[in-house]
Design a protein around this nucleic acid. Structure first.
Length: 883
RNA sequence: GGAGGAUUAGCUCAGCGGGAGAGCGCUUGCCUUACAAGCAAGAUGUCACAAGUUCAAUCCUUGUAUCCUCCA
């Protein structure tokens, strides 16, 4: 064979893009038919509002690892990519653009505005797709979907109409969360509460008959114009006599009654609260219990409307508060003002204060859906990794409230409801109706509102596969296997997907739910645009490569813990990739003039059997790690196998043969090295996809592309516990001698003679004899002789004790005897402490009788080992003293 | 108020009842014919605190403290 030359430096830019194009061209991301079980994953669709951040990089890296792993198992594997239209978020982006041009969306009109939003969508979509490609995501682009594409829009209508037909969707006038800036209603989950400092105002409400006044406490005095009562707790004895009396609402001429309701907290303020059904959720409930009117004070833009006295009209609520307080003070109604921190809801998209707002909206009745979703969990159809998230899921399902799904936006799926302009008939339909079924009028008007974004994303695991059509993808790939998502959208998305899937299809949309942590900066802060502490995945790829990014994230992503990183963190993956590159470069230099030969088991020596055994153990560990979605463990296994076992020991050990062996020995050695290298590329491919493909195709023994090669699995015939044990003795001996040399600062070029004393019946004795030359290399020794009958003269040699053997290094003048004796004495103390522990355990009746027999046996051998080491150290001190 | 997480080396964090680990950083010595983005050797721990269970606890239970999330 001819040597293969690899570039001197690992530079991912040389091949990552080229390799991705090849994969794409060969359609290697598409599922390949086979007898084996299908495997599918849907990508959580990124919003088309911007570019991908580090959280997406983590999420998609893990999915890519999973998908590549199962694809290499030979299963028909599908990973569906796509994007989300992200209703409010995207509309806000476009509105901000317009604002810069001095325009509002109303100036454009609905049609033009939506057209423009599509352009923004296209632009961002292209960026996102490019980013996913740069990351190396092996998703099937031919099946890419968008939440507003034709098929998914059909799915949305199907879902809406079906739920309506089942009586699970209704329209009504309720108090909803409303963002005045976005101009739309929000679902309860879309409100973020923040504890902010505010004021508590104590206000006098005089009795209508002029017989005095009572005092109520409120944080929002401007809503007093919507007051319809004052309530006290029925148990509150202070107020029993005044219940039923009428009050005169200050700054107005309206009279309101004092009522009782048990929701009133006696301890809060004066124990009297004003009831404003249209502007507070608790008051709304109270108002319904008492049949009270709800007086809405707000316009859709957040300003006060005609239901307040003229001077406050048209003013934003928060502004009006100051005026009202001023006027209350002037009128002598304000008793006092105290500081009071309270939770205020904010819009999760624009962070504006959310107002409870009385309006007509569409709702999904959630109870039935939640019950089915809970059942799916109880039956074990879905499993969270880590399990603890199941509590969160169950709690949310059990306390669920109806879902407000209508949004007063233009960007999104129009609600499939039409109203006959002539007879007022409401038509809920899968297809656009042309005439009224009641009066046959053609004058129909579609509902102005659009649906909540999540109303399309909750269908994602099956709408992307073609539902409601009965497609072959649907029958092959549904339900999907694994969903990977961060914990911040368990409610918004994961829970709702399970509900939708159970409701429309009757089974869970996926089995395993992998919850990742969030990516934070090195100070633990969430990465965000406003803090400017985000790391752009593309910058990471430009600096270190996609493999370095994926491997590092995988290595750090432990069990749903948040990941704290900075730019330098990625050096971990980068160095590893560099190591792989250089090891390969070295090995491929050495195939020059060699022939690959069949590697039969009987040609293997102990070192060879050891590296196969280590490889095999790594494969087993990875399988179990992947089974349990312990990505960091898989990454660590790969790292230590390739770097420590393969590079530091096996390749180093093979160098002697490559230099000085016979042609036949060289051929065998090269063949084994190539075999391990080839297998390693397959083992590592899911985690470092580009570099393994680039290398794989250059290997003399490769077959096809690694992306579709067979994944190495545990093979019991390769397991070799004897070789493991023997090599670990060799390693210990090498380490002991190296340490001794290093302690004495003996220059590497100074080769010293070493005697290893080991009992004849020790199983490692023969192996040490056989590999004495190798030992010498590892020890930088001039020669190593193995003394099995204790006859060699070791006078003047520095001793060291290993498990079952002693090593003597002939150091002569290089040694500081006193310092060595001190070191040995510390060694003795350490071992005496350990021995004491062992003896204590073994003299404990309870331990002997209760502990597992293996544990007792192990303890016994530990005791012997400590005793032996102490004895040896004592002998060695004597030896040193005789110098 | 409810739920969950975290507390292990200087930093970031793994850890599976039975002799405390990794990466980075630090110290020392090496440009050993793949890699100085490397090799070799080292130093650094009351495993937050307190009880309990157990023959045996960093690990299980309970409580306490500090920090962080989510929900109401």
């Amino acid at each position: 064979m001819k040597a293969v030359e690899l570039a001197r430096n690992y530079d991912p830019k040389d091949f990552e893009e080229r390799i991705y194009d090849e994969w794409k061209k060969k359609k290697e991301f598409a599922p390949v038919d086979s007898e084996k079980e299908h495997f599918s994953v849907v990508m959580p669709p990124p919003n088309v509002t911007g570019i991908l951040h580090m959280g997406h990089a983590l999420n998609n890296s893990l999915q890519d690892i999973i998908v590549r792993y199962y694809r290499m198992q030979g299963r028909p594997t599908l990973w569906i990519p796509g994007t989300d239209h992200a209703g409010i978020a995207t509309q806000n982006v476009v509105e901000r653009q317009l604002q810069k041009e001095g325009l509002r969306r109303q100036d454009l009109g609905r049609e033009k505005f939506v057209e423009r939003t599509w352009q923004v969508k296209e632009k961002h979509h292209d960026i996102i797709k490019k980013q996913l490609e740069k990351m190396g995501c092996s998703c099937d682009w031919d099946r890419e979907r968008f939440t507003m594409d034709e098929g998914l829009s059909r799915a949305v209508r199907e879902a809406f109409v079906t739920l309506y037909e089942r009586g699970l969707i209704y329209k009504g006038k309720y108090l909803v969360n409303y963002c005045p800036k976005c101009g739309t209603a929000l679902a309860d989950d879309e409100v973020e509460y923040e504890n902010i400092p505010g004021k508590l105002y104590d206000v006098r409400y005089p009795y209508a008959d002029g017989s005095g006044y009572i005092t109520v406490a409120t944080t929002r005095p401007e809503t007093m114009f919507g007051d319809v009562a004052v309530a006290v707790n029925p148990e509150d004895e202070r107020y029993t006599s005044v219940v039923g009396k009428e009050l005169l609402l200050p700054l107005t001429d309206r009279k309101i009654p004092i009522i009782t309701d048990s929701f009133v907290d006696k301890e809060f303020g004066t124990g009297m609260v004003k009831i404003t059904p249209a502007h507070d959720p608790n008051d709304w409930e109270c108002g319904r219990r008492h049949n009270l009117e709800a007086i809405n004070l707000l316009n859709p833009d957040g300003t006060l409307n005609g239901n307040v006295p003229e001077k406050y009209r048209g003013i934003m609520a928060e502004e009006a508060r100051k005026l009202v307080v001023e006027d209350l003070e002037k009128g002598g109604y304000l008793v006092k003002t105290t500081d009071h921190a309270h939770d205020v809801g904010h819009c999760y998209r624009c962070h504006t204060t959310v107002e409870p707002y009385l309006s007509e909206q569409w709702f999904v009745s959630m109870k039935t859906l939640a019950d089915k979703a809970l059942d799916a969990w109880r039956k074990g159809d879905i499993v969270f990794y880590p399990r603890r998230w199941e509590n969160t899921y169950v709690h949310w399902m059990e306390t669920i409230r109806d879902w407000c799904i209508s949004r007063q936006l233009w960007w999104g799926h129009r609600i499939p409801v039409w109203y006959c302009q002539d007879c007022g008939k409401m038509i809920v339909s899968r297809d656009d109706p042309s005439e009224c079924p009641e009066c046959h009028s053609h004058s129909l008007k579609q509902d102005e509102d659009v649906l909540d974004t999540w109303f399309s994303s909750w269908l994602w695991p099956f709408s992307t596969l073609g539902w409601p059509e009965k497609t072959s993808d649907m029958s092959s790939f549904f339900p999907t296997n694994t969903l990977v998502s961060a914990y911040d959208i368990i409610f918004f998305w994961i829970s709702r997907m399970i509900m939708a899937s159970e409701e429309f299809i009757g089974q869970a949309p996926f089995k395993d739910i992998v919850i990742t942590g969030l990516v934070r900066d090195i100070q633990g802060r969430k990465m965000s645009k406003s803090l400017g502490n985000g790391i752009d995945p593309i910058e990471v790829i430009d600096k270190y490569g996609a493999d370095a990014m994926k491997f590092t994230l995988c290595y750090l992503a432990a069990q749903g813990q948040d990941v704290m990183i900075d730019m330098d963190s990625f050096r971990l993956g980068s160095r590893f990739a560099n190591k792989i590159w250089n090891a390969t470069r070295y090995l491929l230099m050495n195939i020059e003039g060699r022939n690959l030969v069949e590697i039969s088991r009987d040609k293997l020596n102990t070192m060879d059997r050891w590296i196969y055994s280590r490889f095999n153990a790594a494969a087993a560990e990875i399988a179990s790690a992947m089974e349990n979605y312990r990505f960091n463990e898989a990454a660590q296994t790969i790292y230590s196998f390739f770097w420590n076992d393969f590079c530091d020991w096996y390749i180093e050990a093979s160098k002697g043969k490559l230099l000085h062996g016979s042609d036949e020995e060289k051929d065998v050695q090269v063949s084994i090295l190539m075999d391990i290298l080839e297998k390693s590329m397959r083992l590592m491919h899911p985690f470092l996809s580009f570099i393994t493909e680039e290398i794989y195709q250059k290997l003399p023994n490769h077959k096809g592309d690694v992306i579709v090669a067979e994944y190495p699995h545990f093979d019991s015939s390769l397991e070799d516990k004897d070789a493991d044990a023997l090599v670990s003795v060799l390693q210990e001996a090498a380490r002991l001698v190296r340490a001794a040399r290093s302690n004495l600062q003996i220059a590497p070029e100074k080769k010293l003679r070493v005697v290893v004393r080991i009992a004849k019946d020790n199983p490692a004795a023969a192996f040490m004899k056989e590999e004495a030359g190798l030992l010498a290399t590892f020890m930088s020794a001039s020669s190593v002789s193995i003394d099995t009958d204790g006859t060699e003269d070791v006078k003047g040699a520095l001793p060291a004790t290993g498990l079952g053997f002693e090593a003597f290094v002939f150091v002569r003048e290089a040694i500081d005897v006193d310092a060595e004796i001190r070191r040995l004495q510390t060694e003795i103390e350490k071992n005496e402490k350990l021995l004491e522990g062992s003896v204590k355990k073994l003299s404990n009746e309870n331990f002997i009788t209760h502990a597992k027999p293996e544990a007792v046996e192990k303890e016994k051998s530990k005791k012997a080992e400590f005793e032996d080491k102490i004895a040896k150290s004592r002998e060695h001190i004597e030896l040193l003293k005789s110098f």
